[in-house]
């Protein structure tokens, strides 16, 4: 059976009154997990839905991943706490025959960075996005730990050790990465005073944006417990500015706006720690690019997307040099 047939087969068991599904299509992007869009047909009309699943043997970083069932719980908790978030409709069970994953509401909006950063439709949203995202992050970091699924506890030191190991596993010697690892070890600010939920991948592609601003936070695959400043640093990584390099927050805003939104929601931002995590995040994306190269080489699939992401690791090298060894 095709994915479309399997969805149509099981929809009645989890969507009351559903008679079938239509318009199933796999969305582009997403090199590790599959995302499908489809419409649930029921007597009152149609409801847009998204399937997120990990076929057997897939996953960007099995050891880092929270797991799709945990992702579904986090998304639901975020939704209940007022974080812009899709409602979870169904967590896949073996009888569905669709591997592991879940189904959620399809939220209208845009995730493609170049459109968000350039199209007129988002012109009024752009100036307020950084501040909005500061508030969203504050709300995420404020989720009560007792309500969360079991997640990995991470520290800067543990993250450095993982990056060091992954880099050596994925790539030949890279002097710029060595420089960054050395800098991170020498500048590790130590464990954070407060440990919170960390989204772990809060950036373009995982944020649905509308003309009114942020509409939904997606993709909790890399969620963990740790230093909340990690999320603020990650969204400032130059790789997510898509050419708008003078606007550190996603290519649309300033750090000050991000921090103001965060602090207005009752939490404190620590700019020095955020900068540390920006360096870490830049190296992390570089190592992830090397990981894509490795998976391209070892997987029978020979994905051209993964191969080309492998050649983007040098982008993080120039960004690391701009951060750690500026010319002039």
């Amino acid at each position: 059976m095709t994915t479309e047939e399997r969805l149509g087969h099981c929809v009645g068991t989890w969507f009351p009154g559903a008679t079938g599904i239509e318009n199933a299509r796999r969305l582009s992007g997403g090199a590790s997990q599959e995302t499908w869009s489809f419409d649930i047909v029921h007597p009152d009309g149609v409801t847009g839905a998204i399937l997120r699943r990990a076929p057997e043997g897939y996953g960007a970083a099995p050891e880092r991943a929270a797991g799709l069932p945990a992702e579904a719980v986090l998304m639901q908790r975020a939704y209940e706490a007022g974080v812009p978030s899709p409602r979870v409709l169904h967590v896949l069970v073996p009888e569905d025959g669709l591997a592991t994953g879940f189904i959620m509401d399809r939220v209208a909006g845009e995730t493609i960075p170049r459109k968000i950063l350039r199209d007129d439709e988002f012109a009024t949203a752009r100036p307020k996005l950084a501040r909005q995202l500061g508030k969203v992050l504050a709300d995420i970091h404020g989720l009560p730990l007792a309500q969360l699924p079991e997640l990995r506890r991470m520290t800067a030191a543990a993250e450095i050790a993982e990056l060091d190991r992954d880099y050596r596993a994925f790539s030949g010697p890279r002097p710029v990465f060595e420089l960054a690892l050395k800098w991170l070890r020498d500048n590790d600010p130590g464990p954070s005073a407060e440990v919170t939920l960390v989204h772990g991948d809060f950036r373009h592609g995982n944020l649905i944006i509308g003309s009114d601003g942020i509409r939904a936070v997606l993709d909790w695959e890399l969620a963990h417990l740790g230093d909340p400043m990690e999320d603020l640093g990650w969204i400032c990584v130059n790789s997510w500015r898509f050419g708008e390099i003078d606007k550190p927050v996603g290519g649309f805003g300033t750090r000050e706006e991000l921090f103001a939104g965060y602090e207005a929601a009752g939490r404190r931002a620590d700019p020095a720690r955020v900068m540390f995590w920006e360096v870490m995040g830049t190296l992390r994306w570089g190592v992830m690019c090397c990981g894509m190269m490795q998976r391209f080489r070892t997987s029978p699939e020979r994905s051209i997307e993964r191969a080309m992401i492998g050649r983007r690791s040098s982008e993080t090298e120039i960004d690391l040099l701009r951060l750690l060894a500026p010319r002039t």
């Binding site: 710029v176 050649r311 040098s314 120039i318 701009r322």
Partner: peptide, 14 residues
């Protein structure tokens, strides 16, 4: 690094 970018991604902002 500049020599790598000239090949990999000459349109990269940085």
């Amino acid at each position: 690094t500049l020599d790598k970018l000239a090949i990999d991604q000459p349109n990269y902002g940085s």
